[in-house]
């Protein structure tokens, strides 16, 4: 389990795929990253979350070796991110807004990148073809990178990031600017690669991160304001939220929410009916039960009282959590 508390470094160093310790980056007077310490466990899918200017792309760029830190340090698999020799075949990166070289064909570009990972030409060729197949781009091999659409270029860049099966992959805004279908395919690809390597995703798309990531850190104004497992961050293992039909009120007559009966359910710790939304928020003791058991019991009580239910969620959702934290 990742323990990611700012500012002190957390998590087991031995199991860490990436680590930052009191990481700071200044651009002139502006502090973009301010004393950030985090540990990403090996094999995790980790999200960097935050509003614009929060410092996530800067943190990402330091981890990718693009930027030099002004203070503190960053490590990838125990090495400085600029230690190319140690990391060339072990770290893959999808940079944000980096244009593919327009004159190269897709095949030439991927083979060149694979060869720079120290693969001999026949293996580089095979790795490039396999990687391009993974992003459903087999037909683009002879196409010039400069002639690709935005979505195609993003997928080629993604193929480049996963080239040669690296142990750590950093993805900066992997679905930004993509149409929903391509974005879905990219998410599926990332999910398919999950578990076999450590993946760090920096993104504005919170639904995507919630769906994909095991852990996340929320940054605001260069600092980590919250971090932990996705369940902890969204309180998915502490509360359930039941969205109710408009006009639903507290009470015991049919169609109304019997709050006291819900409170009597074993291991329920808090019950809050927000009548404006309207939404019923039920907290529970996670050491005694889990969200699924509580959902079943609460729904039974509500349905017995003929309450009209429009939806059920575990926790607050990452988006709500971010809004709570950074406004």
């Amino acid at each position: 389990m990742a323990s990611l508390r700012s500012p002190s470094p957390g998590g087991s160093v031995e199991d860490a795929a990436l680590r930052t310790v009191h990481l700071t980056k200044r651009f002139g007077q502006k502090i973009a990253v301010d004393d950030v310490s985090l540990t990403v466990p090996a094999g995790a899918v980790f999200g960097l979350v935050g509003p614009n200017g929060a410092g996530k792309t800067t943190t990402f760029s330091i981890l990718a070796g693009y930027l030099h830190p002004s203070g503190g340090r960053a490590e990838v698999l125990g090495f400085a991110p600029t230690a190319v020799d140690e990391l060339r075949a072990r770290l893959g990166v999808l940079p944000q807004d980096a244009l593919l070289p327009a004159q190269d064909t897709v095949g030439e570009f991927l083979v060149h990148m694979a060869e720079l990972q120290d693969l001999p030409h026949p293996k580089a060729l095979a790795a490039a073809r396999e990687s391009l197949d993974d992003v459903a781009g087999r037909d683009w091999w002879n196409q010039r990178c400069g002639s690709l659409s935005h979505g195609m270029a993003k997928r080629v860049a993604l193929a480049q990031a996963f080239l040669g099966e690296p142990e750590v992959v950093l993805l900066d805004e992997p679905t930004a600017g993509l149409d929903p279908r391509v974005a879905f395919e990219v998410r599926q690809l990332v999910k398919a690669k999950k578990g076999r390597r450590t993946i760090v995703i920096s993104s504005h798309n919170l639904t995507e991160l919630e769906e994909t990531c095991d852990y996340a850190a929320i940054l605001d104004r260069g600092k980590i304001v919250a971090s932990g497992s996705m369940a902890e961050l969204t309180a998915a293992n502490q509360e359930v939220r039941i969205q109710l039909a408009a006009g639903t009120r507290r009470g015991t007559t049919p169609g109304e929410v019997p709050v006291s009966r819900v409170r009597d359910i074993p291991h329920v710790t808090t019950v809050d009916l927000q009548e404006e939304q309207p939404e019923l928020v039920v907290g529970f003791d996670r050491s005694q039960t889990d969200a699924e058991a509580i959902i079943g019991k609460v729904l039974t009580v509500l349905l017995q009282n003929e309450v009209r239910i429009s939806g059920v969620t575990k926790g607050r959702g990452l988006e709500q959590r971010l809004i709570d934290l950074v406004g």
Partner: peptide
């Protein structure tokens, strides 16, 4: 040209600068 369009980032991960 490659710094402006950040294409250089594809190389710096795999090549000594």
């Amino acid at each position: 040209g490659e710094v402006q369009h950040r294409s250089v980032r594809f190389w710096t991960v795999r090549t000594r600068r």
